[in-house]
Amino acid sequence: MAPSPITTVADLRAALDTPAPLRLLDIRWHLSGPQGRPEYDAGHIPGAVFVDLETVFSGQSGGGRHPLPDAETLQAGLRAAGVSAEVPVICYDSGDTLAAARAWWVLRWAGLTNVTVLDGGWAAWLAAGGPVSTDEPRVEASDLVVRTGAMPLVDADGAVHAELLMDVRAHNRYTGEVEPFDRVGGHIPGAVNVPGGDDFDESGRFLAADQLANRYADAGVDADREVVVSCGSGITAARTILAIEAAGLPVPTPALYAGSYSDWSSDPSRPIATGPQS
């Protein structure tokens, strides 16, 4: 089984107590604001470097509300943060794992392999009594070379023709009852709803690997089926791909529909389904 992409608070504290190099990235971000830099300035895990999801891990053009960054912009942002291919990277956010998982997926897509996410993020760190710093570390820029394409990715055509298209938004957005962001509510015809929020326990930590494995096996994830994951704008979907890797299922990494429903619904010629599974 491949190493888990999840790091616990205990694992991180142990890693910080050793001289081994580590790059810790603070990706705190909120979809509806405020953004994470003021939170970082007010206190962060010692040694962490703040990296902005909107300007480094998202692009300015392309399908959907959070298109992927171009390689040049991503490379510049990661070099400035001191990220290199030789040093393990741990990402954390406020605690819902959305921004950290997006960073994890983009880093993996960019060719880095030793990347993990702190389970429970900043909230878990504080709950465990972890030390807090307001000092911004001095970072030596790296010479990282970004080569995108290391994670499977599909466009709208690839999503609609997938053997299993999972829409991992909340159920009321999938059915079209609620749509706070996109022009029309509903889902891509044929998509099945597997809400990503159900991957967590009451403390905000990921379910145990065997529970995640059972959940996604029941959803139809297996080695013989092409799986594509979609959400609103490609962020929650990245978290689901992280969860499936954490589950340890012997399956290929699911593909991300990066534009997701925000891209699909932006074209009035595309069909929209509403209500329960179509």
Rank of each mutant, 00 (worst) to 15 (best):
S142R: 01
A258K: 02
H187S: 10
P250M: 06
V9H: 10
G204Q: 12
D96Q: 12
A42K: 13
A71E: 14
H171F: 13
V83E: 09
G82P: 11
E72F: 03
V160Y: 01
T148M: 15
R173M: 05
G121Q: 07
A208R: 14
A100H: 09
L144D: 02
A150H: 15
L144A: 06
L165G: 09
L25V: 14
V229R: 00
A42Q: 14
D167L: 02
G64V: 09
G129V: 09
V106C: 01
Y174V: 05
A258M: 01
L212P: 00
T274I: 13
R147I: 11
R239C: 05
G59A: 09
N214R: 15
V89S: 06
A258I: 00
Q277N: 10
G64R: 01
L78F: 02
W104I: 08
P195S: 09
D70P: 04
L207K: 08
A10N: 13
V221K: 00
D26Q: 09
Y261S: 04
P252V: 08
L78P: 03
L165Q: 12
A101L: 05
A14K: 14
A99S: 14
A246H: 02
L118T: 08
G197D: 11
G43Y: 11
A100D: 06
P46K: 09
T274Y: 01
S94Q: 14
S260L: 06
D96P: 11
D218W: 00
I272S: 01
R205W: 03
D41T: 13
L164M: 12
G111H: 10
D70R: 08
